[in-house]
Design a protein around this nucleic acid. Structure first.
Lengths: 147, 147
DNA sequence: TGATTTTAGTTTACATGTAAATTAGATGTC
DNA sequence: GACATCTAATTTACATGTAAACTAAAATCA
């Protein structure tokens, strides 16, 4: 049973595209035994080490509850380590281990995905596409119950 | 910590958009106590009742393993019911209950999401946007390890 | 200062997705 | 017909996301 051609659903198209893009990323990361969710957190730390859980949440868009457990796994893999903060004992800063730093070249993973996604679009088309998508995002965020 | 402006990541943009669109859909469905994942399955059945698990898998893009459990919940909610097939006793057909049929107006939920997503794009822009996204999808599916 | 409210992070319960193993029933081939 | 193989669906183990409850510490304020 195929998706009916009309009326077209932008939501579904975005969803399919997003999952396809995630699939590419997962394929790329699989040899390194890092999940896409983990990569998102690591990529923040590769850019700036020692972020707090809250900062990672803001960066990644994930709730701290989700991060808490994800960080457990990154610690199990010895890619990061939690460190208490002297000034504010509620806060926890996350640091890369040597092993975690060793994967820092993966920070460019998204370029590989970008390359595949944009392979068939001209520069001019990309110039049109990005702003349209960004305006679409503005529309949704204006309507969203969150925020 | 904000997303850096350059280089732009199409993967991330698509992901953010997709999640925002899913959020809209979830908000819309919340009063009916139906999740988006459940809606996808129900929407297939509202169009054609009595699909098998495999057919639902093909339609929804979900693995049968995921559907199996999701259908358990839809059965718990008494929205669908499983029925064995005489000809092939491995196969299971899924039928809407009266209660499930009673929600069939939700089949148009995606139009609400479409409306918000496309609110700020002209007809002409939409005519450009859909084909570009579809070409992007073709690019990914050409590269994907799956299929 | 002492009580109240916020904030940071964690934990728990639940829904969902994947991969891999399992079960039972078709199918195909000799 | 009997054995090997394929297929449909389920089950299990695990990662991840959400919401809500919980803990501990900081900040506010009367």
């Amino acid at each position: 049973m195929k998706t009916p051609p009309y009326p077209r659903s932008m939501g579904r198209l975005l969803n399919t595209l997003s999952e396809a893009a995630c699939g590419l990323a997962e394929d790329f990361l699989r040899p390194y035994e890092v999940s896409l969710a983990q990569w998102v957190v690591l990529s923040a730390l590769w850019r700036r080490d020692g972020l707090s859980v809250s900062e990672l949440s803001e960066y990644s868009g994930k709730k701290t509850a989700a991060l808490s457990r994800l960080l457990d796994r990154l610690e199990d893999k010895e890619l990061v380590r939690r460190a208490g903060v002297e000034d504010d004992k509620r806060s926890v800063k996350i640091h890369l281990t040597k092993k975690g730093q060793g994967l820092s070249h993966l920070v460019d993973m998204y370029k590989h995905v970008n390359g595949v996604l944009l392979a068939d679009l001209s520069e001019a088309e990309q110039e049109q596409l990005f702003p349209m998508l960004e305006r679409m995002l503005d529309s949704v965020e204006g309507k969203s119950k969150k925020r």
